[in-house]
Design a protein around this nucleic acid. Structure first.
Lengths: 198, 198
DNA sequence: TTATGAACATACGGAGCGTATGTCAATAAG
DNA sequence: CTTATTGACATACGCTCCGTATGTTCATAA
């Protein structure tokens, strides 16, 4: 074992705490997750946690930033694969709905996150997924594909629709069966943004 | 002061507790609201609370049921005023967005409720608002106004869109300015459900 | 009249969060 | 090379809060 530099040790500590927090928050929810248990699971104590993240909310914020970044990568991949920008947007939202089925994302990003930290758009990291969607929609408006609506408004409503779609699917008796229904309904809704073909 | 019947006293106690809880939950959020403070504010103690509602979650559920019922009344009024069923649905959702601007509804029904009690459609009271929307959309499908999508899917997505619209408006610097943008974007989206006019 | 149970209040124990304090090692200063 | 300082944690403490167990009172039933 080679001696590690100071900064590397710190980064490793933060990573271990965030990892443990993701597991605990996803499994028990933010409120029920004990910081004693969580830090012990990472081989540390609450001292490390308060030193690195300030308080419990700070840790949640760090976890959310990490997950948000991961989601952004996946969304980017989906969109790059699509043939047109419009289909790219739809593909992104389909992927978003699918991602939101993962308990970790649903519990942390969609339920506890807003409840504890407030409106996602006000988060320090500015919710990269939302920002990205807004820019894409604006581009589609400029290109004449989409009606001249407010891009941010459209992005937010689509995000909300996708979120509820995921909650619905996740709570369903047979998630596999309702998934296509949700995606279909979503695409019908989104089509309302297209410019009339006349 | 006339002597009151036993049942009346109980109902009054429950009402006072629910009222105090609405205030406390709306002001501080569910997690930060202390049951000692809350019950004292109602002139009672935690004993009354646990006797009537079981636990803290039970009280939240009672509060949610009450607010849900109130919202249903207001939605009904909006819809009865409209000229066509389709415009009635749009009017309902506009009212829904407007209601969701009230801190009490936003905090309790839209943020803490789902985070603490899980998916709203699984609540005992079955979220009357959602149920109502589903039925109206189904009727519009039967009437040929709306595409033959899954009614519940459509209702859930519209609810999600309306919810995020409200969160957006509430967090905006100038809520009054973004409100019409949100409603317009919502109606564009909803129009995607209409049958093609060809 | 007495007994029973509902409707609360009071008392108690345990868990959890945040902070204050202590410890040790690495770097900086002299 | 020695010493002072600071960062990166661990430990200890107090406070709040929830849930339950145990009283207490009063209405109603027997």
């Amino acid at each position: 074992m080679v001696a590690k530099r100071r900064a590397e040790m710190v980064e490793e500590t933060r990573a271990k705490l965030i990892q443990a927090a993701r597991k605990a928050f996803a499994a028990k929810g933010y409120a029920a997750a004990s910081m004693d248990d969580l830090t012990a699971d990472a081989g540390l104590t609450r001292g490390a946690l308060y030193h690195n993240f300030g308080d419990k909310k700070g840790l949640l914020q760090a976890v959310i930033d990490q997950i948000d970044a991961e989601m952004l990568v996946r969304l980017r991949r989906e969109q790059e694969r699509a043939e047109t920008p419009w289909r790219g947007l739809l593909a992104e939202y389909a992927a978003y709905i699918e991602m939101a089925l993962e308990p970790e994302i649903q519990r942390i990003m969609l339920l506890d996150g807003p409840a504890v930290l407030g409106d996602p758009s006000q988060w320090p990291n500015q919710n990269a997924c939302l920002l990205r969607a807004t820019q894409e929609i604006q581009a589609l408006i400029d290109a004449g594909t989409v009606k001249p609506v407010d891009a941010e408004a459209a992005a937010r409503l689509l995000n909300g629709a996708a979120l509820n779609a995921s909650l619905w699917i996740a709570a369903a008796d047979d998630p596999h069966a309702v998934f296509p229904k949700a995606v279909e309904a979503f695409q019908d809704l989104a089509a309302g943004l297209l410019r009339a073909e006349g």
